[in-house]
Design a protein around this nucleic acid. Structure first.
Lengths: 249, 249
DNA sequence: CCGACTTTGTTCAGGCGTTCACAAGCGGCT
DNA sequence: AGCCGCTTGTGAACGCCTGAACAAAGTCGG
């Protein structure tokens, strides 16, 4: 039972038992990948996609790190969790590393997602092309408001929230996205979990309670703005020297 | 120059020089508040607002922590950065703590925000009531698409992106929100910074480069989904015992 | 007025993540 | 074929953040 679930820090257990990499290059099984590293791997994957589109065949850790906004040494350490995937003196093969990351992150096969709460934010997510291109497919859009039911959003038509269990069962959806008002988020979450969903992305401003074995990630837009406001106030109240503060590259 | 800007970990310098709390209760100046703590303080503030609406006058750390989804000890530690604001044996005054948090987080006076990129996500943010109620006011909605200019979203009409400098200067906006496509995000960011914006919330899937003294927070929706996909795959590939994995409450 | 219970605030220890610095390995050039 | 330079991968140290236990303090009851 993590005590600060908002900012997950616990490392992640993976299967595999070998103290060393599997002798076969494919199907090697690292044992633990920190969750912070996983998030960055997803960023590297996107950068690599852009590089591949540009016709690049090789990248150095420095260049990749610069594009991703991280430290080169940190990038190499992140990649070391996947086993050796670069060539010393040369760099990383764009195609090779891209494939390896896709494999590790589970992007080989498309994952079915259901989205509950088709307000403006929900509509925006349903329509976001960045998901489909990364192997995520929305198979159900649900809303409690009868006026929204039947609307077509991003190629799907909105269904009543009562169909939740049916949709999840039929599509074998493994990821649920909650963009409902806060007061109904927990009940929606409970129904998703009961229906078999084990990964939930929550945009509602509440802390969801889920049983063990279910993962929740929370995106809280108000919190992001408020952190910025705090930093703002801090700057205003502190010394007026802009050179003293450290900033991102 | 933080090397892993995505998950900020560096503590935050505040002004003030006294080794102890200021003798006056008001205007006390803690010296350092970790950024992770600031993010949680915003969550506590929201929970307190709900409690106040419910008519509650006092809360214990345990109850507040439960509602926020964190450990009671951690919550008390977070609050200790603000100086003593509870009563031993009783708990925290809802109104008092709420006021203190509002003060520390800079919510006393409304902050002007400009939003660039009025697509579906931008429209959703412009219309989100959760911002206005927390002291954030959008004073400018900008888009490069002439067809969107003039649209009314959330009480404002969309203006051409060429007005960016004018809008920022007139409104003295301190926060900029970028919801543009990735390829123009950096140029929009540069213009915002040049116009005087020092805090940026970036939804575009790129690492923005900003000079020192400017803070950037990034929200990457694809990354969130991909982390969930990884956890999913991990569960599927690993042992089938759901009791073995630890889950959030 | 005194005692005991409740709850805060603080201190200590542990774990994780980040960072730096060095050795190992590979390609290209002479 | 041998040497040089470049890049990866790894090992160790540092620091922050998290988690739990203890003491201080205030209130309620007798």
């Amino acid at each position: 039972m993590p005590l600060f679930p908002d900012r997950p820090t616990a490392p992640v257990r993976r299967d595999g038992d070998g103290p060393l990499w599997s002798s076969l290059v494919t199907q090697s099984r690292p044992r633990i990948i920190p969750e912070a590293t996983v998030a960055r791997l997803a960023v590297y994957l996107r950068v690599l996609a852009g590089l591949a589109d540009g016709g690049r065949t090789h990248v150095s850790s420095g260049e990749l790190a610069s594009a991703a906004g991280v430290n080169p040494a940190g990038l190499r350490k992140d990649l070391s969790h996947l086993g050796p995937c670069g060539v010393r003196g040369v760099g990383y093969s764009v195609a090779g590393l891209r494939g390896r990351l896709t494999e590790v992150l589970g992007g080989e096969q498309p994952r079915a997602c259901v989205l509950v709460g088709i307000g403006r934010l929900g509509s925006a997510l349903a329509d976001y092309s960045g998901f489909a291109s990364r192997g995520f497919e929305f198979v159900g859009l649900l809303d409690a408001d009868p006026r929204r039911v039947g609307e077509r959003v991003g190629g799907l038509s909105v269904r009543p929230v009562d169909d939740l269990e049916t949709v999840v069962a039929d599509s074998q959806a493994s990821i649920g996205v909650i963009t409902t008002p806060a007061d109904v988020a927990q009940s929606v979450c409970d129904r998703l979990v009961a229906a078999g969903v084990r990964s939930i992305l929550n945009f509602a401003p509440v802390a969801l309670s889920v049983p063990a074995g279910v993962d929740v990630r929370k995106v809280d837009l108000s919190v992001e703005l408020q952190v910025l406001a705090f930093l703002d106030q801090q700057r205003d109240g502190a010394g007026q020297l802009p050179t003293a503060a450290g900033g991102a590259r």
